[in-house]
Design a binder for these strands. Sequence first.
DNA 1: CTTGACCTTCCAGTTACTGGAGGGATTATA
DNA 2: TATAATCCCTCCAGTAACTGGAAGGTCAAG
Lengths: 128, 128
Amino acid sequence: MMNISKTAESAEMPVKTVRYYADIGLVEPSARSAAGYREYDEKAVRRLIFIRRSRAFGFSIEECRELLGLYSDENRSSADVKAIAKKRLIEIEKKQVELQALHKDLSHLVKTCQGDDKPNCPIIDYLG
Amino acid sequence: MMNISKTAESAEMPVKTVRYYADIGLVEPSARSAAGYREYDEKAVRRLIFIRRSRAFGFSIEECRELLGLYSDENRSSADVKAIAKKRLIEIEKKQVELQALHKDLSHLVKTCQGDDKPNCPIIDYLG
DNA sequence: CTTGACCTTCCAGTTACTGGAGGGATTATA
DNA sequence: TATAATCCCTCCAGTAACTGGAAGGTCAAG
């Protein structure tokens, strides 16, 4: 059993975040000390790491909750996991398309802007 | 002079947003009617459109505020505009790199996952 | 026995809106 | 002229996922 700062260190996330995840019922402490301190066991730490990695993929907290449920479900179907991941993948691809369009337009504008002390500016012209 | 709903329609944004921009002092109404209704002239509408286009590029409200200042400054230096745009461009590029890495890893995991009714799952394995 | 480093809870702030309540103003219709 | 529909107003709360800070309890070391 570890206190919250050791737990946060093991899971490589801020103490505040561990506390937040406990508050929203995502990863609850395994126990509380007599003084009311949160205590976490190895399993809880593994769940926190699972969340950190899921978050790094951009899964929302609610998606993390679902994934965590599947993680601890011995009878899960991989299809359920795959569906969530696929959804995220499509979001990523959508964002990529969006960013590519933005990049194309903005980089063109930046290239054509003189960037001197005169007011003439294709960027402003485009926006206005 | 237009009331807020005509203004919002002309600027192609929700009434709520026009009101919000007024609240934060981004684009203030040109006047108020006797009853206290917001009234906008053509110039104000053009400023709203400017904001909408800037927001579409992903500029933050504060950046929009700066850009709007430069837009209405006859003595601006295009270098100032370019600097803001460049900063945004770099953010976009950073995000693109990030998304590319996520896409690579996640698409690989999704591909290798069977997606059937069995619990075996490389996605879960990777996260756990 | 005090100091410092922990820990707790609770509240506020972040970004850029959005939804809704409660109530006044204007316009169209009967 | 009465009323109903459609505006408009302000203010408050909620969104996502934390983060910072205040006020105060706990614990180990010197």
